[in-house]
Structure formats: structure tokens, C-alpha cells
Design a protein around this nucleic acid. Structure first.
Lengths: 250, 250
DNA sequence: CAAATCAGCTTGTATATACAATTGACTGTG
DNA sequence: CACAGTCAATTGTATATACAAGCTGATTTG
């Protein structure tokens, strides 16, 4: 069965990025500590210097590292973080961390909108809406259960898609560019069905993120995203929030 | 020292970036319009493809351009959105909702910093730090368990306060104005002690929010905030920010 | 001793090349 | 006409190489 799809293979430079991030997040490499040079990384990972350089370069652009010509590369101070949690889509988040994202479509159908769904979507109660369920994996481990209700008036072709090829978020962004989104986060206990899909024990604590998205035509979709508490933290990583930074010369 | 002409001092890839930005800002290249391919730019500027690529690549990372493999490079829409969750302190949040906030001090002492706490606070392992535990209520119902570790070097009088009168957050804001904060959110199961304090059944799903706060003197405190899943949702708040102007250096 | 120089490391810029992956258009076949 | 296959263009990944430029520490020189 070919239900599974890999939206991206893990590139060499991504592996090196992930390795560097791991060392930093584990505390093995402290702030201001010098990290291996491009040549050392290249030798260690059996890649060319240019490939190692790319990994280091991209992390530098994200303010994770600081480089000085002639001196070396150092772990950046983490101070420039905001008190805002950035909610990104799961595929980008996984890829940004240098891991492999894949997803499995579990269901895709038209259902009658029960009142809470109808209210969230702004449609008539018991009118038909699209309903999809996907499981997202990081390195083949389930990390998010995505249940989504979609307004058929705004994305009428949603039902004809194959979400093994493209994520619902990606598809919806394409057909109805987002103008607004609202989130809420809470802790819940997984039920039997959810535990099965996420491959965790029953009644484990999970993060539940509810998201409503708008385009200029109205509410596009209402999604319930469930993450196993043991495998996911929201905002535990650097929120590089392209701020206009003052650069100081030391 | 050999003199160099100013023209040679400007990097080639920078010249190409400037050229592309000029075309976009002058309106010559409209939004969504296809721009010359890497090979065309390389030929036009008499550089290698990799150099032209670098210019286009950097602008893509700044959301000025959008690239699609096999298709080409296009001028991006000037608006990008990201949704951010705002984390507020519990007392303000409860008051903002028009409810009554109260808190109970459970513990306040000096302890030796075990390694994870020491790392979070940026102090020596097993050096003394302040430790407080409070329960916050909304309309007399427990809604947050606050466990906090405080850097004594920055708030030496923390240990002498009575946190039935003032919240730790309020006190710390007063003595060491916060400059930065970092959060992570996850789902956990409450243990016996936590369940008792929050007056909930054991092993209920809870939101755990970890917060590190900085002042300009360093890490002020590290807090673990636990909310019963049944009583609290982290509020969704949306922010749009238009892309900032890209300034070229050099 | 103090200053200048040099050697050796680092990152920065640039080139040339190869092949993979994706898209869209073209083309031949039934 | 419909469809499948092919092909060209384009971006994506990766390598190998060369030299420039900046920093540090050791060496040489005045």
C-alpha cells in the first residue's frame, strides 16, 4: 500500500543543520562556544566544504550562529526572542528542523456540518462540508493528527485532491490565500481512535490546537490538530521572527 | 596596501540583488511576474550561474521572490503573514476577562540549583537559587500552578517578599525590567502533588508552559506554569505583519 | 624590548561542472 | 481528438577548486 508519501528526502546540508541544532539544544555546545570549522564539518560528514558551508550559512541567517571571517563560527546568544509563539505549518516546521516529513491520508469525504462545525465555518447547520483526516509524521513517527473541516463554497475542489501529494494547508493556501487565522491551544486526553492513529497509549496527554483560517471570502477551514505530548512542544525552538535588528560593532 | 577601485569592492552577487530590487521597486517587474532565470542573469551580468543563483536565493529567503523548481522565479506578494500566540501573565489575563484573580503562596525558599535549573538560569550548578510555588485562582478555582526559580544575583530580595500581596511576575518586572522572554508549551500528565494543588484528579492532561525571562543583566527567572486542561485554553491572537523593507548593505 | 612580518588557520567570494527533480510544452501514435 | 511519451527549460543539490580577506600567534627584525 502506497498511502505514504515523502514530501522531501533529507538533504545532506539539512542533516548537518539538524546535527548542529541538536548540539546547541542539548547544551553540548554552549552560547558563544566555537563550533567546528567548515573544513572540519566537511570531513566529519564526508561532504564538500561548500555543502557544510551551506548548513552553517543558513543557520547564521536565522541568527542561530554568528560567524567572523578569520576567527570562526560561534553559537549565538538566544536573547532576541519574542514572547510570541509562532504557529507554522507542520511540514515546514519539520523540514526546517532538518527532519523528514511525510503524511498519510486517512479520510476524505463530504459530511453534514454538526452545529459546532457549522458555527466555526459560518455555514448552515447540517449543510455539506468537506472533512479530511491526515496523519503527519516526522521521520516516520506520527507527530500530528490533522482533522479538518473545509468550507465547500470557497474550496470546491478540495474533495478531489490527493493529500498524499500535497498537504491540505499547502493546497488551501494556493486556492484561497489566507488573510487571517485564529488559534487556541489546550491539553486533552487522547481517545482510543486518536491513540491508534498516533500510535501512542490511550489517554495520553496531547496538545490540541484549534485553528480557524480566513480568506477574503470568509472562513476557509476549521482544523483540529492533535500532537502527542511526548513528541511535540510548541515554540520550543527559536522563533526567528525576522526583526529589524540593530547590528552592533564590538 | 594595494588600492582597489570602488566598483570592484562591491560584490557581484550584491550588484545583482540590487538590480533585482531596483526593478521590483520601480514597478518594472510586477507582483507575480516571472524574472530572468539563473542562466539568463548569469549571462547578463557575466558571472557564473552559482553567483546569479546566490543573489536570487538570498532574496527568496527574504520573501522578496518566490521560486518553483521547473517553473521559474517570480516577484512575491509584498505581504506575508504569520500567526503568533501572545503569552500574557495570568493575573492580567484573568482580569482582562473580567474575572477575579487571587493567589496563594505555597512555598518560598532557597535551594541548590540542580543542573537543568542551573542551565536555564545561567548559574553554577548547585549554587543557591530562590524557589517559589504559588497557586493562582480564577474566581477561587485553581487555574495555574506556578513554580519559579529565580536568579539571586539579579533579584536578591526575592526571598523576602510576601507573594500573597504581589505576584512574582509583578515584583520581578519592577526590580528587573524584562527585556526578553522565551516560552515553550507542551501537554503533560499531572502528578499527585500537582493534582492536589490544582484540585483535579490525578493524571489529568495539563498544559505546561515553560518560561525563561531576561533582563539586561541576564536570565532573571525560569518558571514552570501548569494549567488544568479542563479549565484553560491558551488564547489565539492573530498578528499580521507586512514584510519589512529590504535594505542592502554596501 | 617593541614593532613589523609571516605562517596558518578561518570565513568570504567566485567559478565550472555534473546530475537530479520538476514543470510545461511539444510530438507522435492510436 | 485524446493520450502517452519525450524534451527543453528551470530550479535544486552537491562537488572540486581557486583565491581573497581577516584574525591569531609565532617569528623575525630593528
Amino acid at each position: 500500500m502506497q498511502e505514504k508519501s515523502q514530501h522531501a528526502a533529507v538533504k545532506k546540508f539539512s542533516q548537518i543543520k539538524a546535527h548542529i541544532l541538536d548540539r546547541i539544544e542539548s547544551g553540548e555546545w554552549d552560547v558563544n562556544q566555537k563550533i567546528p570549522s567548515e573544513n572540519e564539518l566537511a570531513a566529519q560528514f564526508q561532504v564538500s566544504r561548500m555543502t557544510a558551508r551551506r548548513a552553517v550559512q543558513e543557520l547564521t541567517e536565522q541568527d542561530v550562529l554568528i560567524r567572523t571571517q578569520g576567527l570562526g563560527t560561534f553559537v549565538a546568544d538566544t536573547k532576541t526572542q519574542s514572547s510570541l509563539l509562532e504557529i507554522k505549518n507542520i511540514a515546514d516546521e519539520i523540514n526546517d528542523r532538518g527532519h523528514m516529513h511525510s503524511s498519510t491520508q486517512v479520510a476524505l469525504s463530504t459530511i453534514d456540518a454538526i452545529p459546532p462545525v457549522a458555527i466555526a465555518l459560518g455555514v448552515e447547520e447540517y449543510s455539506p462540508v468537506f472533512h479530511s483526516i491526515l496523519i503527519h509524521h516526522q521521520n516516520n513517527v506520527p507527530i500530528q493528527l490533522e482533522e479538518r473541516f473545509v468550507n465547500p463554497g470557497i474550496a470546491p475542489q478540495y474533495i478531489d485532491q490527493d493529500f498524499n501529494d500535497i498537504t491540505p494547508h499547502e493546497y488551501l493556501s494556493r486556492v484561497a490565500p489566507l488573510t487571517e487565522a485564529k488559534h487556541s491551544v489546550e491539553a486533552i486526553q487522547s481517545n482510543k481512535q486518536q491513540s491508534d492513529w498516533l500510535n501512542i497509549d490511550m489517554k495520553q496527554p496531547c496538545l490540541q490546537l484549534l485553528r480557524r483560517t480566513w480568506s477574503n471570502q470568509g472562513v476557509v477551514s476549521f482544523a483540529r490538530l492533535i500532537y502527542p505530548g511526548s513528541r511535540y512542544k510548541l515554540g520550543g525552538h527559536l522563533t526567528f521572527h525576522t526583526s529589524q535588528k540593530i547590528k552592533m560593532k564590538g
